[in-house]
Nucleic acid binder design. Structure first.
Lengths: 127, 127
DNA sequence: CTAAAACCTCACATTGACGTCAGAGGCAAG
DNA sequence: CTTGCCTCTGACGTCAATGTGAGGTTTTAG
């Protein structure tokens, strides 16, 4: 398929697909006239990239993981595994922080609600 | 206290503190010569701002919450409550997504580990 | 064959939360 | 008084992912 179809299937912009290639996250074959062509697996690949972006990984970091995704071998899985473990830990910490923040937000909401009900004390800064 | 002390106590840069003021997130009294002075509560305030930033809220959004944090009243808590509920939901969704991504990362790691152990099949793109 | 739609490269613009630098003034200690 | 650190304003730089537009080629549909 060509770039437009890939983009719409994966739900991203054409610009993004070109950017991923520019960053070395995605490869394509070129027609004689220079147009990019992709196989179906590229859709999954783009989805994977999106997921990693959503997790807060940068292009740089995703690149480090790709050798293992593409062609796992004893050599590349060593460093990639380390990297993945590292990112996994970061994610876990991040998730915990977000949960704490959500709790803080809940606390603020509770205070505001209480205030609305019986015009109580000032709402302390969230903790 | 002056800006440098606030910044180091709150663990942010001086630049950030000025930026928060510029965005209307933080206020200061000024000495005759124009230097900013803060009370101890500013430290908590900065911590709160940081927490909200970490939760992915923008300055714009944090501003909408502040009236309720500063001086809760029936009028402002209405809109702020709505906003908080909205952000709370967004946070919940985001957390769920991150958990799914972490699971995907775990899957990749398991595959890579299995590969290392008995040189198995190719590692499929993460799902 | 022709017009529309999709594609190409190149390159500048955008957004947000800052970093950083310049040039000037403020303030406590020796 | 002066040395040195802190602060001020203002403005430009950064980074990452993507938007956007120019100017030109290719593919597709009628």
């Amino acid at each position: 398929m060509r770039i437009g179809e890939l983009a719409s299937r994966a739900g991203v912009s054409v610009r993004s697909v070109r950017y991923y290639e520019e960053q070395g996250l995605l490869s394509s074959t070129r027609s004689p006239s220079g147009q990019r062509h992709y196989t179906d697996s590229a859709v999954e690949r783009v989805a994977f990239i999106q997921r990693m972006y959503a997790a807060g990984l940068s292009s740089r970091t995703i690149i480090e993981l790709l050798p293992c995704v593409d062609a796992p071998s004893a050599e590349n899985s060593d460093s990639a595994l380390e990297r993945m473990a590292q990112e996994r830990d970061r994610l876990t910490a991040h998730i915990a922080e977000l949960v704490r923040t959500r709790d803080a937000l809940d606390g603020l909401m509770a205070t505001a609600l209480a205030y609305r009900e019986h015009l109580g004390k000032p709402c302390p800064v969230g903790r």
